[in-house]
Design a protein around this nucleic acid. Structure first.
Lengths: 339, 339
DNA sequence: GAAATTATAATGATCGATTAACTTAACCAA
DNA sequence: TTGGTTAAGTTAATCGATCATTATAATTTC
């Protein structure tokens, strides 16, 4: 029953030649006569010979695989990034393995160690929310394994990165709201320690300044990354006498909370409250009303990250320099902010 | 810079013993004196020795990894199944690699071949929508690699499976609608060739019969798996003079379309139109109104599939018999169908 | 026709680990 | 003394492939 896979040895025996000759013949090494080469390749095809990647990797110290660690797998953003990575990896003939840290540092470490153990040729990673030390990342560097960070990165790490220009993205979202007539724009954001939160905050403030509007700190609300929490925070804001007429949320989840709050209070969207989210999640398109949001071009993020990695894998000149690629986000105007 | 990983040989040299002794000592083989064993294990720990899984797998023909192929990765159902699988795999000390077929047979074949090539010890798979031949699945069997199918399976394949009792689930969803007072229940379903569609159809019809209601074939509507299509189909149904007062949809996506249609026509949910979906997608909980749906207990599906696989991997008696485990779905009553 | 050159293929070491088979020394019994 | 047992290792083959080195045969050169 158990069909043992065909090895190079089987081919050698059938043709009465040595394994090394077979190995060379399969690689079209000109040191082997055309006759032999053709005979070997023909038989290999007939027997459906597939090289054993374990053996090849053991011998050559190259596995032709790259590992990707994402914080979550149930996320259209990360799923699209992975697709972008896969596209590029395909071109280079590499297999991609994905694992998720589930926003836990412990799992992230486990995944990284697993990848290193499996001798993967490179690692692309986005830090989990919980990651606060970087020994496991440093270890990748120490082992000389090429690596690229994306999206959730840290300035403490001297590694090539692909990042979003969060400040610019926030700037264009908020400018759009102002252009639509908003006078008091609330900002729903997350915990202070998150880098992208601080960057988007910067963009928010700059957009206001650029239009000579005052920054009202009471309109900035920090919440957990849950719809419920965002809804409560928004309710609180909307019940004030001097309520906001627009919301910019740091992600779609929080924006959904804001919309839920406005609905509950019977406020019209976008006439009385306009909303712009961030991420272009699948939900944002299909909800009622459809939600304006920032599209972060995740596939491109993936492609850029993979390119940086393969530059290193292919030993391109200057590939080892620490680079930072910025991928811009595009504003998608939908019902929730349409004039 | 590139820190070569520590091998068994390094340890052997430092302690002036042979590699085989080191190998045995690390495994606590009693043929090696306690002294030596302790010395080896101590040094191994100090040097942070990690066995090279490639070498181990090559030699032992066991990789301690299992591969999972899912049709989509951006799906809370499959993501949860994977979590369930990972839980069990963790207990057994196996690594799990996941890849997605993206609903394409070609990609599915590629993934399967990749896993077989990597000599994974077992494969858990859910067929893509496009899969219509099974040579690649048969190949897994022929190679004697343990395998379990889940969710999207085929009766043509003699393989252990974990399936949902779709008929029973549909039955309870529809019964719930009837109990809520529905008289004319529309059924939104997909293409005829899908097995789970036929099963849910069976449950739908049986539930009606059980309550002595007549089956009105004009209330059964086939659509693509898109919100738009479902919305259009629902609009058509709801505009009839004799319109349905409830919808049972084969998945949440279609149910969302039905809700969108009812909203557009200004019909009250659930008073004028009740809706029950299927899958308990994340969206179903947070939308307006929150949607009743069937929870398929995906984590349990994963756990059961993994258990079947490990029974085979551990060579438990009778593990090779083709088994079929049924995981039941639970009705989650939310606003869209609440009386 | 002997030497030099070239073409072609075989040998054997190697990657890092496992393991069957064997060695060596110590110990005990008769 | 002889033989048998046991403990504690060592040797060497092996997994499937790669590759530097070496061997052999064929061909060319003078």
């Amino acid at each position: 029953m158990a069909n043992r896979p065909v090895t190079i040895k089987d081919i050698a025996e059938k043709l009465n030649i040595s394994v090394s000759t077979v190995s060379r013949a399969l690689k079209n090494n000109p040191e082997i006569s055309l006759q032999t080469r053709e005979a070997v390749q023909k038989l290999a095809k007939e027997l459906k010979y597939q090289p054993n990647p374990l053996a090849v990797a053991l011998k050559t110290q190259k596995s032709n695989t790259i590992g990707v660690v994402v914080p979550q797998i149930v996320s259209s953003f990360y799923a699209s990034v992975v697709k972008g990575i896969e596209q590029v990896a395909d071109e280079f003939g590499y297999q991609v393995f994905v694992s998720s840290s589930n926003e836990k540092m412990e799992k992230e470490e486990k995944n990284v160690n697993g990848f290193l153990n499996m001798r993967m040729d490179g690692i692309i990673l986005s830090l989990s929310r919980a990651t606060n030390t970087y020994d496991h990342i440093q270890k990748i560097k120490d082992m000389g394994v090429p690596m690229v960070l994306f999206d959730r990165t840290s300035k403490e790490l001297e590694v090539s990165k692909v990042v979003a220009d969060d400040a610019a993205a926030a700037h264009s979202a908020v400018s759009h709201l102002i252009d639509g007539g908003a006078k008091r724009i609330a900002f729903l954001t997350g915990p202070e320690y998150m880098l992208f939160g601080r960057n988007r905050m910067r963009g928010y403030k700059k957009a206001l300044k650029d239009k000579d509007m005052t920054i009202d700190e009471t309109l900035i609300s920090r919440c957990d990354f849950t719809v419920e929490d965002a809804k409560n925070a928004s309710l609180e804001l909307l019940k004030r006498s001097n309520r906001p007429d627009a919301f910019f949320a740091i992600n779609d989840e929080l924006a959904i909370g804001a919309i839920a709050a406005a609905k509950e209070l019977g406020l019209k969207i976008p006439e009385e409250v306009a909303v712009v989210g961030f991420s272009n999640s699948r939900r944002s398109r299909y909800m009622e009303p459809s939600m304006s949001t920032m599209d972060q071009n995740p596939k491109q993020v993936g492609r850029e990250a993979a390119k940086l990695l393969f530059d290193q894998l292919e030993d391109k000149p200057g590939a080892k320099d620490v680079k930072e690629v910025v991928v811009h986000a595009d504003l998608l105007v939908r019902t929730s902010s349409e004039k």
